[in-house]
Amino acid sequence: MLLIHCPYCGEDRSELEFRGAGDAHIARPTNMADISDAEFEAFFFLRQNPKGIIYERWRHIHGCGRFFNAVRDTVSDRFIKTYKAGEPKPDINAAPATDAKVETYEALEGDAR
C-alpha cells in the first residue's frame, strides 16, 4: 500500500484516501481576458510531464478534504515531500530520478529498446 503524508492531518494515510489534481505551482494569469490564444494554451494545456521529479497538487478527498502539494518521483512513484498549499516550492535537488531496486521498464526489458 502506498502511503502519502497529509500535511494537514499530520500523518501517513493510504493512497485510497487521496486523489491527484495535476501539476502544482501553475499561476493563473491575472489578465485572462487580454492574453493570446497561444498564451492561454501554454497556461491551460501545456505541461512538462517530466521523467523524475514532479511538483503536483493532491487532495486528501476521503480525509480532511484539503488540497496540498507534493514532490513525487514519477519513476519510482516515491513521494519525496508534501507541503501545505500556498507554501513555497521547495528546492529538491540531488534526489535520484531512478532507484536501482525499482522495476522500471528499462530495468526489466534491458536493451529491448
Binding site: 500523518e11 494515510r13 485510497l16 480532511c64
Partner: peptide, 12 residues
Amino acid sequence: KACPVGKCSRTI
C-alpha cells in the same frame, strides 16, 4: 498506538 481512544477521521 496509531489510533488511540477519541481519535476520529474521515476515511474510506
